[in-house]
Amino acid sequence: MLWPCRWTHLPYIPTSGAMFLSMLTQEEIPCNSLKFLEELNGKVPIVHIEDVSEAHMFFMNNVGSLNGRFLCASSFVSTAEIGNYYQHNYPEFKVNQEYLNDPKREIKWGSKKLVEKGFVFKYGMKEILDDCVIWARKKDIL
């Protein structure tokens, strides 16, 4: 997930942002992509670009003690959690009721290994989704 402040120079909305905003914009293709990602993983992994950068530096500073693959996502959320967050915090937008039904899936992968090694995420779902809305308002998308 890219941090919206980093998007200001782009002439288009990044796919990740379009997917999260699709709950509010009612755009079918990015919303279906979000639902597919949830179906594939159990939940939607999200991460702030600054946390990704920090994770890269964390690995460079601990190169001798870390090996293997690590997933980097601060939150694993359902599309229903995203929709409910938007509905509760941005009531001026209408979230499609079908997005609010939570099938209660478990995640298949996680960032537990990264956290166990000592990495701390700074941004969670709230900050990431709020940044998407702030950016979209500035760009007159919402």
Rank of each mutant, 00 (worst) to 15 (best):
H88I: 05
Y86V: 04
K138R: 02
K94P: 01
N32E: 03
F121W: 06
G83D: 07
K108I: 11
Y85C: 09
V63K: 02
M19R: 08
K104N: 14
V47M: 04
F36D: 06
E39V: 01
V44L: 10
N41H: 15
I13E: 04
F119L: 12
M23H: 14
P91W: 08
L142P: 13
C5T: 09
P103H: 06
S65H: 00
L129V: 11
L129T: 10
G124Y: 02
G124K: 04
K43Y: 13
E92Q: 14
E38W: 13
L66N: 02
K139N: 02
M60S: 04
I13Y: 00
D131T: 01
F59D: 03
K122R: 10
L37H: 01
L71C: 12
R69Q: 11
Q87K: 09
E39G: 08
D102F: 11
V77C: 07
M57G: 09
A73G: 14
L2A: 07
E81H: 15
I82T: 03
Y86M: 05
T15P: 07
Y12L: 01
S53A: 15
Y12C: 02
R69V: 14
G68F: 11
P11N: 08
W7R: 09
L10C: 05
C72Y: 03
S22N: 06
V52S: 15
H56L: 11
E127C: 01
Y12R: 05
L40D: 11
T8Y: 06
L142E: 01
K126W: 00
V63M: 06
K108E: 13
T25P: 07
A136E: 04
T79A: 13
W3A: 07
M125L: 13
K94H: 13
M19W: 00
A55M: 05
D140N: 09
E28G: 01
N61G: 12
M1S: 15
N62W: 12
K122I: 04
S53F: 04
E54S: 14
E38C: 03
C72I: 14
D130P: 10
T15N: 07
N41V: 13
A55W: 00
K126P: 00
F93D: 04
H48K: 12
I128L: 15
I29W: 12
E54I: 03
K112T: 15
G17I: 00
